[in-house]
C-alpha cells in the first residue's frame, strides 16, 4: 500500500475508528459508573440528599459503619456459605450430566435439549414456577413427598425458616446453572482424543482410573475456570432470592446482592449501598484476578 511521503510514521486510524463507538459506550456505561460508585461510597447520600442535590463527604464513614455492623458480617457469611454450597452442587451435577451426555445411547439428543431448557428460561419465571412447586398447601413437591411416605412434609412450608429458604433457593439456582457447567465440560470431554482412553483400556484401566488418571488432569484448567466463574456468578446472585423470599423471613436470607439493593432502592441510602457494592466488587476482583492468572498460565503452557 502506498505510504504518504511524510516524515512521521503513519498512524493507522482504522482500528481506532472501529473501536471508538464501542469504547464510548463502554466508558460511559461501565467505567464511569464504576468510578462513580467508588466516589459515591465516600458520601452520606440518602433520598433526601438526592432531592436537595446535596451530599456530605464522610471519608470512610460508610465503610466503618458497615464493618462495625454485625448484620453485614452475618450477610457476608451467609453469602459465602450459600455461594460455596451452590458452586459445589452445581459442579457435581454438571459433571455427572456431562459424563452422561458424553456416552452414545438412544435418546441422547432429547437429554441435550432437556438440559438446555432450565438455563434459558427467565430467572423470574423459574423462581415463580418453583415457588408454586414448593407451595406448602397445594405444592406438588409436598404431595409427592407425602406419597413416598414422608408424612412430615404434609403442609411443610419451604420458605419460612432460613435453612429451608436457602435450600429451596439453592435448588432453583442449581437447576438453572448446572447446564452451563455440563455443556462446557462436555466440550472439554470431547476435546480429549479417544485414543488415550483406548490405550488405557488396553492396559486394563478401570473406569475410575480413567477418570482420575486422564479426564480430571487434562481438564484441570477448565474445571478451575468453571469453578471461578460459578463462584463469581453465584456470589452476586439476586433475582432468584428477590423473587422467592425478598431476603426474608426477617432478613434471614439476605445475601450481598439483596443487601446492596435494599440499601439503595429500599432505604435509598445511595452512599452506603455504593460502599457495599464496592466491597462486593473488591471480593469479585480478587476472584477474577485468580481467573486471569489461571488463564495466562494456561496460555504459557500451550
Amino acid at each position: 500500500m502506498p505510504y504518504p511521503k511524510v516524515g512521521f510514521r503513519r498512524i493507522d486510524w482504522f482500528p481506532y475508528g472501529l473501536l471508538a463507538p464501542a469504547l464510548v459506550v463502554v466508558t460511559g456505561l461501565m467505567l464511569y459508573p464504576l468510578l462513580n460508585t467508588v466516589w459515591l461510597s465516600f458520601y452520606k447520600y440518602s433520598l433526601l440528599d438526592i432531592l436537595s442535590q446535596e451530599k456530605t463527604w464522610i471519608w470512610f464513614g460508610n465503610y466503618l459503619a458497615i464493618f462495625k455492623d454485625p448484620f453485614f458480617w452475618q450477610v457476608l457469611g451467609n453469602t459465602a456459605l450459600f455461594t460455596a454450597a451452590c458452586v459445589i452442587v452445581t459442579m457435581l451435577a454438571g459433571f455427572a450430566v456431562a459424563m452422561l451426555l458424553n456416552v452414545k445411547f438412544p435418546g441422547r439428543a432429547v437429554l441435550g435439549v432437556a438440559v438446555l431448557l432450565p438455563w434459558v428460561i427467565p430467572r423470574v419465571a423459574a423462581s415463580i414456577v418453583w415457588k408454586w412447586i414448593f407451595n406448602d398447601q397445594y405444592g406438588i413437591l409436598n404431595y409427592f413427598l407425602v406419597l413416598l411416605g414422608f408424612d412430615q412434609f404434609k403442609e411443610f412450608s419451604w420458605l419460612t425458616t432460613q435453612m429451608r429458604a436457602f435450600t429451596s433457593i439453592l435448588i432453583v439456582v442449581v437447576w438453572q446453572s448446572f447446564p452451563f457447567v455440563a455443556f462446557s465440560l462436555l466440550a472439554g470431554f470431547q476435546s480429549i482424543s479417544s485414543e488415550i482412553y483406548e490405550a488405557a483400556e488396553v492396559d486394563g484401566a478401570s473406569w475410575w482410573q480413567k477418570l482420575t488418571g486422564i479426564t480430571l488432569p487434562l481438564l484441570k484448567n477448565l474445571l478451575l475456570i468453571l469453578f471461578i466463574l460459578e463462584t463469581v456468578w453465584d456470589f452476586k446472585i439476586f433475582d432468584q432470592v428477590y423473587v422467592m423470599t425478598e431476603g426474608g423471613p426477617a432478613q434471614s436470607t439476605y445475601i450481598m446482592g439483596i443487601y446492596a439493593w435494599m440499601e439503595a432502592f429500599g432505604n435509598m441510602m445511595m452512599g452506603k449501598a455504593s460502599a457495599i457494592a464496592v466491597i462486593m466488587f473488591a471480593i469479585l476482583a480478587l476472584v477474577t484476578w485468580l481467573y486471569i492468572r489461571v488463564l495466562s498460565r494456561e496460555e504459557e503452557v500451550a
Binding site: 469504547l23 463502554v26 456505561l29 467505567l31 459508573p33 464504576l34 456470589f235 452476586k236 446492596a260 449501598a273
Partner: peptide, 24 residues
C-alpha cells in the same frame, strides 16, 4: 485492553452500575 474491560463487565456485580445509572 478492551478485551480485559469486557471481562470485567461480565464479572462486576450489576448493582455497581445500577446506582450511578439510576442517579444519572
Amino acid at each position: 485492553a478492551l478485551a480485559l474491560t469486557i471481562l470485567v463487565a461480565r464479572i462486576v456485580p450489576g448493582i455497581t452500575f445500577l446506582i450511578p445509572w439510576f442517579i444519572l
